[in-house]
Design a protein around this nucleic acid. Structure first.
Length: 719
DNA sequence: AGCACGCCGACT
DNA sequence: GTCGGCGTGCTC
């Protein structure tokens, strides 16, 4: 009896495909093995996800699987179901998630294989019995062997893969084993000493209480989700103990972090405490190292896996504990395909594994905090986290760029020979130019946003598309001679600092002035070595927490900029961004100071960030969310369609929103609207937001909207 | 993602 | 008259 295999491919295709299993491969065709099959005239590698004894679709002419690659499944049943749930949850391709669950060395890609002519092929070339395209390919190959992409370039045949597979079928071409090339290079994440990790909190009663609370669900061996709210050092103490206890139950542990850099000292610490059972898994590892780690994890030799969001796909089948530290960090979200949020993904994995998932942060997202609280699964730590000395400077009553209060603080610090960090999240010299006579503001024709003014280069640049033009001396509309710069950026701040403190060494750290990776390292290095007195940086610098020592003086300029965005998380983002920047400062006990200069001194996101009072921020924010019916009081999904031209996207988005409107009641639809620019240059997004009180309603509506929707997209979910 | 089919501008 | 642009639509 013939068997049938359901196959998914690592392409942005949501559906699965049905193939006939050749009789000789009957036993090898199992869920989780990789196969080669013809798909749309191309040989593609894919994964068997199900095997059927009878054809579930008799109406269709099916193709045969060409080859079964693996003898044993490379994907475990648990990973299979986990990735399927991910693909359903985030509306991305199952096959793409399966691909992500394999080290790159196990990916089979036709394009990287070498092909050569067989003897029969050489004869056929000589005899001239080949078809036009085949002849061209054979002539290029000759007696040699080349990579498929080289062949494609040389012959100019776009359908080269199908030419090759056709010729391979006829026995004219042989596909050679891919030669393994070692890729050394790759930086080890910069070293920082694990000083703070050595503090001992085991005497802290709240740490002991936390361990007591968390030990129970861990021992239960079934799914549960908890939130550990507290300072980083105290959290780590709890985590280390929890890990130890999970290991003693012969469970594996997954420890996720938003970034790579801080995981290096963490690994050192865990190895010191728990022995060599720790493995790293991240995308920047050399392929060989990644495969080795992957195999160690899969075999169970490595019992603790540390890594960024991609480590969620580590082949951890016996997970008893999943830690998602720094839960508030949006780096857990991946927008590139397959798009997913590792925080929600960790929950799904924990459900599948019957594991305990623990989120941790001192500035939680209000959604997660609310959830933990209502479930009675919030664990609060009191230890750690020394208070800082923070002042707020109201800049509404002052004219200059830097308030008196800020100048006093920085001036004093400099006189004492102590360095300072100044954050300003605005690039260039001014965020726009303004004609005081006619009110004209130069805008980008394509993106319809104001152009950023760069004084050094005398140019106006669009921060969306990157287009730039020379700045004209006069107002292009009314001819007025003066155009005023508004909204001071990094360049203006540097200029002002050089004017105020001519003897100080001022440097900047932003994507415009410091473009290359090595140049950035150099700036950080110079600051560490005391060769810079004041470092002015944008958001880019705010993400380098682990690479700088604690600084005695910090200035934060106008963090309220984020509040202008029409985003229900704007306050939360502001609060978190201020807290992130504050992390660079030494504690108050060390005589340090933080000055926040703002036009919104009374806004709770800034006020409570300055007071380091998360619960107070939370109370205000949750009131706002309840009032506006935003998550966690409703479920929201944001669908963004991507493409180079936004116009056809808008059409599609309109169709999508009308489909949503038609099929659901109790669904609120916002948009379509132009999405904020992405990192993917040259592409624009159009978004539609779905909102519902009931999670299930939204779920159903989202599934309906995504059904049959093609093209590049991301789905962001809040609930 | 590819690739094929299909309908409108500048060329042998 | 064709070659070829990339706009929809399909791939078991």
């Amino acid at each position: 009896m013939t068997r049938f295999a359901e196959v998914v491919f690592p392409l942005p295709l949501v559906q699965s495909f049905l193939y006939i299993v050749p009789d000789k491969a009957r036993d090898a065709a199992r869920p989780g093995v990789r196969i080669l099959a013809q798909l749309g005239g191309k040989t593609q590698s894919g994964f068997i996800v199900r095997v059927h004894e009878q054809s579930p679709r008799s109406d269709m002419a099916l193709k045969e699987i060409l080859e079964i690659i693996d003898i044993e499944p490379v994907i475990s049943p648990l990973t299979l179901s986990f990735t399927r749930r991910l693909s359903e949850h985030f509306g991305s391709s199952w096959g793409a998630f399966l691909q992500a669950a394999l080290p790159p060395s196990l990916e089979v890609r036709m394009a990287s294989a070498r092909v050569g002519l067989t003897d029969k092929g050489i004869q056929a070339l000589r005899a001239g019995t080949l078809a036009k395209e085949e002849k061209r390919a054979a002539a290029v190959l000759g007696p040699g062997a080349y990579r498929v992409f080289y062949l494609r370039r040389k012959t100019g045949a776009k359908n080269i893969a199908s030419v090759i597979s056709r010729m391979a079928k006829k026995g004219l071409i042989k596909i050679l084993e891919e030669k393994k090339t070692a890729k050394p290079k790759i930086p080890s994440p910069s070293r920082t000493k694990p000083t703070q990790l050595e503090l001992d909190f085991s005497v802290d009663p709240s740490v002991r209480d936390a361990l007591d609370v968390l030990a129970r669900p861990l021992a239960a061996g079934e799914f549960s989700s908890y939130y550990l709210f507290g300072a980083q050092d105290a959290r780590r103490t709890v985590f280390v103990d929890l890990i130890r206890s999970a290991l003693s139950r012969s469970k594996q542990v997954l420890f996720l972090l938003p970034e790579l850099a801080p995981s290096v000292p963490l690994k050192d610490l865990l190895e010191m405490r728990l022995g060599p059972v720790i493995a790293f898994l991240h995308g920047q590892m050399p392929d060989a190292a990644r495969e080795l780690a992957w195999r160690k994890i899969r075999s169970g030799a490595a019992r603790v896996v540390i890594g960024p969001r991609s480590a969620l796909f580590a082949p951890v089948d016996a997970a008893g504990l999943i830690i998602v530290d720094e839960e508030h960090d949006d780096a857990y979200f991946q927008s590139e395909s397959p798009s997913f949020d590792a925080r929600q993904g960790a929950r799904l994995k924990a459900e599948d594994n019957g594991a305990l998932v623990v989120y941790g942060s001192d500035t939680p997202s209000v959604e997660a905090f609310y959830r933990a609280r209502t479930e009675g699964h919030l664990v609060t730590l009191s230890g750690g986290g020394e208070k800082q000395n923070v002042a707020i400077a109201d800049d509404r009553s002052e004219r200059g760029l830097l308030t008196r209060r800020l100048q006093d603080g920085l001036g004093k610090s400099l006189r004492d020979g102590r360095p300072g960090l100044l954050f300003i999240n605005r690039r260039g010299y001014a965020s726009f130019l303004f004609c005081p006579r006619c009110g004209h503001i130069p805008r980008c024709d394509r993106c319809d946003i104001s152009l950023t003014f760069y004084k050094k280069s005398e140019r106006l640049v669009c921060r969306y598309c990157g287009d730039s033009e020379a700045r004209s001396a006069a107002c292009p509309r009314c001819g007025s001679r003066v155009m005023e710069p508004r909204g001071a950026g990094v360049e203006a701040v540097v200029e002002e600092l050089e004017r105020l403190y001519p003897q100080a060494r001022v440097a900047s750290f932003d994507s415009d002035r410091v473009k290359t990776k090595s140049a950035r390292e150099r700036v950080l290095e110079n600051f560490r070595e005391g060769k810079i007195d004041v470092l002015v940086g944008t958001q880019l610098l705010a993400y380098r927490t682990t690479e700088l020592p604690l600084v005695p003086w910090i200035g934060i300029l106008n963090p309220e900029a984020l509040l202008a965005f029409a985003d229900f998380r704007a306050s939360q983002k502001t609060f978190q961004s201020v807290r992130r920047m504050m992390r660079f400062a030494a504690p108050a006990a060390a005589g340090s100071e933080i000055v926040i200069q703002t036009a919104f001194p009374d806004h709770y996101s800034i006020r409570e960030a300055a007071r380091e009072d998360y619960p107070a921020f939370y109370e205000e924010e949750i009131r706002f969310r309840r009032l506006m019916n935003y998550p966690p009081f409703s479920a929201m999904a944001e669908i963004v369609l991507w493409g180079k031209d936004p116009r056809p996207l808008a059409e599609k988005a309109r169709e999508l929103s009308s489909r949503a409107r038609a099929q659901a009641s109790g669904i609120e639809i916002l948009g379509p609207a132009l999405a904020p620019p992405s990192i993917l240059k040259g592409e624009r997004g159009v978004q539609v937001i779905l909102k519902s009180r009931e999670k299930e309603t939204l779920e159903a509506c989202l599934a309906e909207c995504l059904k049959g929707l093609r093209g590049k997209r991301t789905v962001v979910r809040y609930d």
